[in-house]
Write a protein that binds this DNA or RNA. Structure first.
Lengths: 230, 230
DNA sequence: CCAAAAGTGTTACACCTACACCCATGA
DNA sequence: TCATGGGTGTAGGTGTAACACTTTTGG
């Protein structure tokens, strides 16, 4: 890239690394892969890639997540920039981390094979290369604070879900158990969920009713000054 | 920079922009300057500079704040990376924003002259170049959430301060008035402030007692599981 | 009929909010 | 003596946390 104004300035490789989160088996999971290039080829790594000149950083992150999961239209937010000099063993690379919350059911398992990707439980996360584990820790912090004040958790679930599932999602985010009655009471009095007639019988004989998130109602309530807190 | 492993990748100019905040006249202020280089020379801008190859991004941000304020040993945190393609009019520049909380009394006014820097009230912030105003807005959001759960406000004050001053600091951060009695009650029952014998008589005839933040006690209480919230 | 998960209310306590008057002092 | 900002207490309401039993149904 030629510079008209800013001459004699150093330039840097810039990458994006994506903390792609899904919810399965009552636990948060993160999509990790075996790195396909040197150095540390074969090491466990987040999904990442270099930023190309014709795209913004946000676009690069979206592209990377799309490539690796086959999912478009994803909830993503930036975690931050990681700029230690030797964070990448090969070269000076500045990386911008993003977290993405996806519905794990939409995940393309063929792509998983292709990229040697797998979902790892956050409670049993193996060591990752470079500073990727720090990126994950930072993400979990952000998620815990953010999930408490915005209903972002629903991005991890399908259209419909049961209250026990929703509760175990929040338990997994906060890494602590929640009282069933208090949880249901709070959620239901918020009046942002709609109960359906169907039941999910996959995890109990009695079955649990499906609910769905009513975004219109939520937006309306926020408009009126309601404070969401979980 | 020559690349051993990562060939044919685009590289980028990377800058840091610093939202340097101080507290004066019962209001938060941000240090802004008139830009010294083209393009938009003379435009109002945050303090910034390019990252140099031999330094981490954090180090670059510290360097920039030191250069412009003369203050070392500063509370700084990253706001995030700004990577839109055309955010800088001249070239593709990726910028990482940091906010810094400084004691305005330590600010070197000679440097202010040198760099044509001045403190602008956040409630009357003029237009800034590029996406700098968005950086400021993002910072204020972070500050409001962070100040509520960590005692970072003290970084904006000197060693000792009065309760009316502390209250007006928080009022300025949250942009809303706080009840005097409730504020004092909460602060004092937290037991992290130490009352001094001296009074500040600069803003009233009666004078207000000075207090100071007891960090040891605070750390101890956090250790015991206390939750700071303001 | 039994195991296993879904569903349901009440009470005590802590915290937050609202609110009005006296105090100390320099000019 | 008076104007100005500093300092103090209480009561009501809101939200939070703790707690145990009944219901449903497939196997």
């Amino acid at each position: 890239m030629t510079s008209t104004f800013y001459e004699n300035k150093d330039s840097f490789l810039v990458a994006v690394d994506c903390i792609i989160m899904g919810f399965r088996d009552n636990e948060l999971h993160i999509l990790i892969t075996r790195r396909q290039i040197e150095p540390l080829k074969g090491g466990l790594s987040l999904m990442g890639g270099f930023v190309n000149a014709p795209e913004s950083i946000d676009e690069a992150a979206k592209r990377v997540v799309g490539e690796f999961t086959g999912i478009e239209d994803i909830f993503m937010e930036q975690v931050g920039a990681y700029g230690e000099i030797n964070r990448d063993l090969a070269d000076r690379v500045i990386s911008v981390a993003y977290y993405a919350l996806v519905d794990i059911e939409q995940f393309d398992t063929l792509l998983a094979k292709k990229y040697d990707a797998r979902w790892a439980r956050i409670t049993m996360l193996p060591d990752l290369i470079f500073d990727h584990k720090k990126m994950v820790r930072d993400t979990i912090n952000i998620l815990q604070r953010k999930a408490a004040i915005k209903p972002i958790g629903f991005n991890l679930l399908g259209e419909q879900f049961t209250l026990p599932t929703l509760q175990s999602l929040y338990e997994s985010i906060y890494q602590e158990t929640i009282d069933k009655r208090n949880f249901r009471k709070k959620l239901l009095t918020m009046d942002i969920l709609e109960k359906l007639d169907e039941k999910d019988k996959s995890s109990s004989k009695r079955g649990a009713f499906y609910y769905q998130f009513n975004k219109e109602k939520y937006d309306q309530l926020i408009e009126q000054g309601m404070h969401f807190s979980l």
